[in-house]
């Protein structure tokens, strides 16, 4: 018993509950990277924005070097990249036919990779940008606008309107409400998952700084971050597929009614 108590003291040391709270608050706070003034307005750039710039530059460089000198018969890295692109297209093909899937794949793949790599920064002990709610909200808003725009591009404005009215006209307000809830749900899911994992990891780093963070980090830093990117991309596809399906069903029903009348 005495040995256990000494071991506990050795691991935890002088830590008090108040210290943990103080350290956690320090870890959670959104830091200012730098600020500049534009037209007399002070614009603060948070640290997570700088991290996303880093991720963007990394992905852009990777895309430039991997997309260069493509050969008819793939070799080396080209095989891996083609596999990735094919994976993204087949995820999109779950909800729509192949030709449309190839048109949505660029956005879906970009957003999935971007979120996955932004979350992976926590391996390097850089706070992941998704712990700032602004990151999640911005991506969710971009995605919902993309979903609506793509839906309209694929089925036309009339088809989109029909998809809003599809099972019943009385559902229109709820369908409109749905388009407001979707970005909230998307952003809260991303923010909540990453923030929760980040806080848990910070807590473990403070309380037990050895061995255990390495084991738990495999899930919370690596697998969970990639999974969130995958889920975000997948939900984008599902939302687009929902519009397409509703529009097609509505058009099929309209055709059936015309045939019945004649």
């Amino acid at each position: 018993m005495n040995f256990l108590a000494r071991l506990w003291d050795a691991i935890v040391g002088e830590l008090r509950v108040g210290d943990i709270g103080e350290a956690m608050r320090d870890a959670i706070a959104v830091r200012e990277a730098f600020h500049f003034s534009l037209l007399g307005i002070r614009i603060v750039v948070a640290d997570s924005v700088v991290v996303t710039w880093g991720v963007m530059v990394l992905l852009a460089i990777a895309a430039f070097f991997l997309g260069r000198r493509l050969k008819e018969i793939p070799k080396g890295m080209q095989i891996a990249v083609e596999g990735l692109v094919d994976g993204v297209v087949s995820v999109c093909a779950n909800a729509m036919d192949r030709k449309l899937a190839e048109r949505t794949a660029p956005y879906v793949g970009t957003i999935g990779l971007f979120i996955a790599f932004s979350n992976l920064t926590s391996i390097l002990k850089i706070p992941p940008p998704a712990k700032n709610p602004a990151f999640a909200i911005a991506l969710a808003l971009a995605t919902i606008f993309y979903v609506i725009a793509t839906g309209i591009r694929m089925v036309g404005l009339k088809g989109f309107w029909q998809s809003l009215l599809y099972p019943n006209k009385a559902l229109l307000p709820f369908k409109l409400l749905d388009y407001m809830i979707k970005p909230i749900s998307l952003s809260l899911r991303l923010f909540g998952n990453v923030f929760g994992a980040f806080i848990l990891m910070e807590f473990i780093y403070i309380v037990v700084p050895a061995v255990i963070p390495g084991v738990l980090g495999l899930w919370f830093d690596i697998a969970d971050g990639i999974l969130q990117g995958l889920i975000f991309a997948y939900l984008t596809v599902i939302y687009i597929g929902e519009i397409l399906e509703n529009a097609h069903e509505a058009q099929a029903r309209a055709k059936l009614q015309i045939r019945r009348r004649t």
């Binding site: 959670i28 809260l188 909540g192 923030f195 929760g196 806080i199 889920i231 997948y234």
Partner: peptide, 24 residues
């Protein structure tokens, strides 16, 4: 199943956000 789990899990995530808000 994965789609369903994502949507079910969202409710727990909302509660997580609420409790984090309560704490911080």
């Amino acid at each position: 199943l994965f789609t369903a789990i994502v949507f079910i899990e969202a409710t727990a995530i909302y509660a997580l956000v609420v409790s984090l808000l309560l704490i911080f």
